[in-house]
């Protein structure tokens, strides 16, 4: 009887998750050559991918980017959630809403908007830095694009993470704070020793989601690419490289191998992460 309810989802699950994954794996084991047509090459595409400087540099970029952007977003989100949890006023309620607002904006539109702000022709950076007689930073240059993108994703996601953490903080039983105060704990101690450990499951959830999202990085660099000519290549992230191989070069076999390899990296990364944090994992 349960299959009656699970069945329709099961069909979609098989058709749009299992089948594409299996098909991608299948495709990735073949190569199309000008002479001789398509032939079975087993793992050659993967050997090629893991020795391909484009794929390796893209993977290295998203890993580095994750290591900087994810902790930054979570620290900002956690700080904001703790402030909003501790201080209640009309202004903090307003702030909570405004900080969450970027979540309602499609990542593409967010990237377009930050592209405007970074622009030399009509962005405000030259005005602001001009006031102090300084040269404005060019976040679309190859030196600073990393930070330009870190800023875009922080703006986009910190508010969302803040809301998740805030909801978790609001769920804590306030009598715990009373007890801690009786024992002489200050505000900082309450935040560090009680609040943060109690919302650890929510923090882990955020970490996992942001890791999955960041390793697949595509929308923001793809959008800023047209503004940052020469800075962001078509192989900037593994996902962009897979897109280029499949849709610009019609090399679906290699494109599948790259996206399958990336999927494997994400899956293993998340799995390892969950394995090492399994004691605290209560959200799955």
């Amino acid at each position: 009887m349960g299959w009656l309810f699970v069945g329709p989802f099961g069909i979609v699950f098989l058709a749009f998750l299992i089948a594409p994954l299996a098909y991608a794996l299948y495709l990735s084991l073949f190569q199309k050559r000008l002479i001789g047509g398509t032939s079975f090459v087993f793992l050659d595409n993967y050997v090629k991918a893991f020795t391909d400087p484009s794929f390796l540099s893209g993977s290295w970029f998203v890993i580095r980017f994750s290591l900087v952007a994810i902790p930054l977003q979570i620290i900002v989100a956690l700080a904001m959630a703790l402030i909003l949890d501790a201080v209640t006023s009309l202004f903090t309620r307003f702030s909570r809403l405004m900080i969450f607002l970027p979540y309602a904006i499609p990542t593409v539109i967010g990237a377009v908007m930050w592209g405007f702000l970074y622009s030399k022709s009509f962005g405000p950076l030259s005005d602001i830095f001009g006031l102090f007689g300084a040269t404005p930073p060019d976040f679309l240059s190859s030196n600073l694009i990393f930070y330009g993108l870190v800023n875009v994703v922080t703006w986009q996601w910190a508010g969302y993470y803040m809301i998740i953490l805030y909801a978790a903080l609001q769920g804590i039983d306030p009598t715990l704070y009373e007890a801690a105060r009786m024992d002489g704990a200050g505000k900082w101690q309450i935040a560090l020793r009680i609040k943060i450990p109690l919302i650890a499951p929510a923090l882990l959830l955020i970490l996992v989601f942001s890791l999955i999202g960041t390793l697949q990085f595509f929308n923001e660099p793809q959008i800023l690419r047209s503004l940052a000519a020469g800075t962001i290549g078509p192989d900037f992230t593994p996902n962009m490289y897979a897109y280029q191989q499949a849709f610009s070069l019609a090399n679906f076999n290699y494109g599948s191998a790259i996206s399958f390899a990336l999927g494997g990296i994400v899956f293993i990364g998340v799995y390892v992460f969950l394995f090492f944090t399994r004691k605290r994992r209560s959200f799955l």
Partner: peptide
């Protein structure tokens, strides 16, 4: 029902599959 735990574990596993990895094979299909 039969295979309930296994199916649900698959659904949870699917949370970790990057959505973009599915786009290229889905396109060809």
């Amino acid at each position: 029902f039969a295979a309930r735990r296994f199916s649900f574990a698959l659904v949870l596993g699917a949370l970790m599959v990057p959505a973009t990895a599915l786009v290229i094979p889905t396109f060809i299909m």
